[in-house]
Nucleic acid binder design. Structure first.
Lengths: 208, 208, 208, 208
DNA sequence: ACGGGCGGGACTGCCCGTTGGT
DNA sequence: ACCAACGGGCAGTCCCGCCCGT
């Protein structure tokens, strides 16, 4: 009876339009921020540049931080995760999901990604927010993993390993950005994941 | 070891007075926040409760978040780190430093620590800020470690392992707080660090 | 007596449907407000609870305040007034009209009335609005009275006495609500009106 | 030890400066509102005209309504009330207090008072607010009266009579403003009070 | 070192006009 | 014709900065 039963389009169309608007606003915002710095750029300036009212800005992004943080891949990550075989090693599942999402952003528009990551590394406020978003997203991620391999792995252990894996992404992004985007992001990411796996060596000596 | 112990008492005395004031303000703030929630509590209310002016509040804490984040152990962590033998396994160095600082807070006033940690887990703003502070503090920490065992370990690897270790603290605090502070925090911390070391199993299968 | 009864059912039916919707929305609103407080309850929450869009809320109630103020008896008061004999003492006319309207609400759903009156006494914004509505409604009332007994009473005097009578309703509602709705509202109302009439004593000594 | 013990001056000086600023802002506001209408005048315009920031406007007046409502006599009314002999007839006490406060405003700057009263009569929002302020102030007033003649008069009766007296002020202001400020406000006020006292006649016939 | 005055920017909530879909 | 979503405008609050006098 309600609108939901016609599969897809009308909702998607709306949602797609919103995504386009968001991309447009973000583009203007990143441009201004690159010129003037993050704190020096006001919402009013961004709204002017995007030809919308400040009030409308907040309809698309709940906070100023979000205009930098947001990207269009966020919602698909969990679906990808759910599609991996449940007996796959954790590091491998993680590697594949990150390659799909982060890699997607990377291939589609490396400049934009670099601009955003540079801000994440530079502006303390965004640095914090990024870490926060990771942990929030992480909680949902944990829930998916627990339901998939619940019996096979201890809940606390899952969290420890998961957080360690998440940290590899932060390190990889940091390193990539430190080299001004010259290196290959995905290669660096592979390296950091491998380092975590191998780094065990040092830790095991600690356990001995 | 560092500079604090020489210039005599005058600095220390001032500093100690400031610390006492900070503790007082924090106590009032935590009390109000527990009653009303973090966002509902304004600086003005805290200042009133602490019998200071709002302006003075900001002389003691740069932001509202800091009144929850701050503790009196922050500055000593790096000194402790510096005092450990340079050939000690990383996990062990880390474990000892955390036991000294976090453990100190825990033993001195577990109630206060629990209140703060509960907020860190609950309020998104503080959750982010905490993650941010960790990474900031982490950078200094890395610098100390690099100068000590610089040649013996790859810089990237150090960051990966270090971040993984940091994550164990977050997980341990989260778990402790989830149990309403009933369990022993240091025991949980030991467990999460061990889990990271043992986590090898799952990760290594990934590497195979 | 007035225009409503002629144009047949279509208007009345529509109007009745609107009234039902209004009652439904008001019920949801009062429920939420009782739980969370007036200011903490947003239009969006009310709209969600009533399963309408925020925009539609404003089609039924011009402002947020009105969802508390409104009741289904408002329009009939003037008709009743018009129906009273023109030579009846003012206090008696007033008493009868109020008994019919307010008394109707009271008998039909005392709980709802109590909830609304409690808000009127508590929330400053609504307190003001209520007083404002009374004076607005009062102006129309005055016009009716003037046309009926215009020659027999001085215009200024009519306003003074009328306002004094209106005040008795406010006092009665306040007293009734202060007793948590335990007493009989109409009895209290009779008492306050009588007190005004008898209040002469003190005032006349002033005039002497 | 603190500053309060030097009697008077420093506090009063600050307070007097605040009052002067308030008067200046109010003057600008009334000027703009007279030209453009109340709703058409924004805080930003008022702030610009007064050469302050919007933020500062709200330091002096909590709401836009208050810039019209406020006057410098508010706090003295209760003291005056307390100074009257406790056995004086209620209407007389009331008459004297109102003559002192409202009369003070009237003599000092009748133009300003007329502008404000005209708005009170015209803008529904302000009309409501005025009625609300009266009832709020009334509650304190009641408390003073009860403590003075507590035993001699019934609490409910006091409220009924008090509210009736308050209404005479509203009616008087309304009438004065309707004549464009031509008549003498205090004379009109005397008349309305007298009418209330005499109006009893009509009411008593109702009671008979 | 403290308090107070002032400014500014982020953000929210109410309310309204318009448009497009049913 | 009704209604939902969209965009906009204004009031108002909070955090936090700066400057000044004490």
């Amino acid at each position: 009876m309600t609108a939901d039963n016609q599969p897809g389009r009308s909702v998607n169309l709306r949602e797609r339009k919103r995504t386009k608007t968001r991309l447009m606003i973000q583009a203007e915002a990143l441009r201004l921020i690159e010129q003037q710095g993050y704190e020096q750029t006001t919402i009013e300036q961004i709204a002017d540049a995007a030809a919308i009212s400040p009030r409308t800005f907040f309809r698309y992004f709940p906070t100023k931080e979000d205009v930098v943080m947001w990207d269009e891949y966020d919602p698909v990550a969990l679906e990808l995760l759910d599609a991996r075989p449940p007996d796959e090693p954790l590091a491998e599942t993680f590697r594949m999901v990150v390659r799909a999402t982060l890699g997607g952003l990377y291939r589609r528009d490396p400049e934009r990604l670099l601009a955003r990551v540079r801000l994440l590394a530079t502006v303390p406020e965004l640095r914090s927010r990024f870490a926060g978003l990771q942990t929030e997203g992480f909680d949902e991620l944990i829930r998916v993993l627990e339901s998939k391999r619940g019996s096979k792995i201890d809940a606390l252990s899952l969290r420890v390993i998961g957080n360690a894996l998440l940290a590899t992404v932060r390190v990889a992004l940091d390193r990539w950005q430190a080299g001004d985007g010259k290196g290959d992001l995905l290669a660096i990411l592979d390296e950091t994941i491998d380092l975590l796996v191998d780094g065990v060596g040092d830790l095991q000596r600690a356990a001995a």
